[in-house]
Computed example of a mutant assay.
Amino acid sequence: MSKYREDQAHRAYDDSPDRFRAHHPDDAFDGASGVLFEQAMAQTRMAICLCDPHQPDAPIVFANRAFRALSGYEEAEIVGRNCRFMQGPGTDRAAVRRIRAALEQEEVIVVELLNYRKDGSTFWNALHLGPIYDAEGRLLYFFGSQWDVSDVRVARAEERHARELARELSHRMKNMFAVIGGIVNFTGRTRGIEAEAREINERIQALGRAYETTLDEASSGFIEVGQAIRSVLAPYDPQGTRIHFEGNGLRSDFSAVSVLGLSLHELAANAVKHGALSRQTGQVTVRWARNGAPGAPTIVINWIEQGGPPVDLQHLLLESRDPGIVDRMLAMARGNIMREWRKDGLWATLRLPLREDVA
Rank of each mutant, 00 (worst) to 15 (best):
D327K: 04
G292E: 05
P297G: 09
M329N: 10
G295D: 14
G324P: 11
D327N: 15
T285N: 02
T298G: 05
D322T: 14
L330K: 07
V300Y: 00
P310M: 03
G307V: 09
D327F: 05
P297N: 09
V286T: 00
A289M: 13
I301D: 01
L313K: 00
G292Q: 05
D312H: 06
G308L: 07
V311C: 10
N291V: 12
W303R: 08
L316R: 15
E305W: 07
I304V: 13
A296F: 14
P309G: 12
V286Y: 01
R334G: 03
D312F: 03
A296K: 09
M329T: 00
R287F: 01
P310R: 13
P297R: 13
Q306G: 13
R328E: 10
V311N: 02
I301V: 14
G324M: 02
I325F: 15
L316N: 12
V311Y: 00
A293Y: 00
S320G: 07
W288A: 02
R290Y: 03
I301W: 02
T285D: 04
V311P: 01
A331W: 01
G335K: 06
R328T: 13
V326D: 09
Q314D: 11
D322Y: 11
R321S: 06
G295C: 06
A293M: 03
R321A: 07
I299Q: 08
V311Q: 08
R287M: 02
A289C: 09
S320C: 07
V284Y: 07
G292L: 01
P323M: 02
A289P: 00
V286G: 02
V300L: 14
G295W: 11
M329C: 05
R287H: 12
R290Q: 14
P323N: 08
D322E: 07
A289H: 13
P309D: 06
V311A: 11
L317Y: 01
A296W: 03
T285G: 02
N291R: 11
A296R: 09
P309T: 08
A333S: 15
G324W: 01
W288N: 02
